[in-house]
């Protein structure tokens, strides 16, 4: 039996990795989505908008905040994407990666803003890039990075209370 495994390593190893990628990768992804949802609810009080300014906002200071996240592809997703590359169409296996990266990046940006005492982030932008430059290459693992940045506006009231708490 062991002999069989050694003999057909070339065949069995990718199958093992595929199964592993599907089960564990899927598990981690579901967990991440749950965590994203929970944290998004928590940060509902700190909206991030794409407006350049907020009329009527009593701003004490505005500061650049940013958050970035890198999410890696698993073996199963990569295999699916390779198959997709042959036939064409939506690479749905990568869509969830990009979505996770974007939302995670926004949440991290909000985290930073909330530590500053900001109550809103204006002029938010999101950018995405591939890391490793070879998302489909055989020997390297592709990842996607999303970076979200914007201007956190700290209201006058909050700054006073923030300063007070520092003392």
């Amino acid at each position: 039996m062991l002999d069989f495994f050694i003999r057909y390593m070339d065949l069995l190893l990718p199958i093992c990795l595929l199964v592993l990628g599907y089960i564990i990768g899927g598990m981690l992804e579901r967990r991440h989505f749950r965590s994203l949802k929970a944290r998004e609810l928590r940060f509902l009080v700190l909206p991030a908008v794409t407006f350049r300014n907020m009329p009527g906002h009593e701003t004490a200071k505005g500061e650049l905040v940013m958050g970035s996240a890198v999410i890696s592809v698993d073996y199963f997703k990569r295999f699916l994407a390779i198959l997709r590359n042959i036939f064409g169409g939506r690479v749905s296996s990568y869509e969830s990666l990009v979505d996770r990266a974007r939302r995670e990046a926004i949440l991290r940006m909000k985290e930073q803003a909330s530590r500053m005492g900001a109550d809103i982030i204006v002029n938010m932008r999101i950018e995405t890039s591939a890391i490793g430059n070879a998302a489909n290459s055989r020997r390297s693992v592709g990842s996607v990075e999303a970076i979200a940045y914007g201007t956190a506006l700290v209201p006058k009231r909050a700054e006073i209370s923030g300063a007070a708490s520092e003392i």
């Binding site: 949802k37 998004e40 199963f76 997703k77 749905s92 979505d99 939302r103």
Partner: peptide, 20 residues
């Protein structure tokens, strides 16, 4: 809260895998 059903395609990846 952002609607997460928009940017991620629905459908079983296993099914897609088998088909492809």
């Amino acid at each position: 809260v952002a609607d997460d059903s928009v940017n991620v395609s629905k459908g079983n990846p296993l099914r897609e895998f088998c088909l492809l």
